[in-house]
Amino acid sequence: MEHYNMNLTLKVWRQKNEKEKGHFETYSVPGISSEMSFLEMFDVLNERLINEGKEPIAFDHDCREGICGACSMHINGKAHGPWAGTTTCQLHMRAFKDGDTIVVEPWRANAFPVIKDLVTDRSALDRIIAAGGYISVNTGNAVDGNSLPVEKDKADTAFAAAACIGCGACVAACKNSSAMLFTGAKVSHLALLPQGNPERKTRVVNMIAQMDKEGFGSCTFTMECEAACPKEISVNNIARLNAEYMRAAFTAEETMG
């Protein structure tokens, strides 16, 4: 694709801290290269703000190669911006034209309070994982390879679910601020594998209980999450989560959970 430069107008959400009310600030950003990533464009803007003695815009980022799940911007009404299956860091400026106005907001959900500017506290997702999104293994010698047979089909489905990077775009895009796609992906990838089997029931029950406690909404299957997910996690994982939950809820003893 041909390289071009563009002059942009950015409307960015600025908020000092969790307590204070935020507002939009408008910046004109000239001379942006179409080869830049969206975050590099923010780097350019921030350098200018620092040089001008102003507070730079805070945003989450880490690996910048689409695998860590740190970056989280709601760009022009879409989580991670206009490209499908792409994180904000992998979104490139060639997605925009010269003269565009771009509105950038943080993830909006009560379960994700804004810490500063575009940075939100997504530790609610960590607490869902801590409630059961793991397997307990004894330390010691590694088991022999292939001693636990896994069907190819299931391995593939589990792997596709495990691709979730926990960025929270599903919550950001859902009209109910539901974390069901995230939780569904985490429950699915363990429920599909033999290693996940011993803790299968307690896992799903505890993770859902934690999810509800964190103040996420419930799923109404609008499928907006799937469209927003940078890893293109299927809503089928939500249906599997429902099945797993019912399997556990209707067979569990009262003492469980």
Binding site: K11, F24, H74, N76, G77, K78, A84, V103, E105, R108, A173, K175, T222, M223, E224, C225, E226, A227, A228
Partner: peptide, 11 residues
């Protein structure tokens, strides 16, 4: 709520 409305590419 968001200022730029929801995209509806998925729903």
């Amino acid at each position: 709520n968001y200022t730029a409305g929801y995209g509806n590419k998925g729903s």
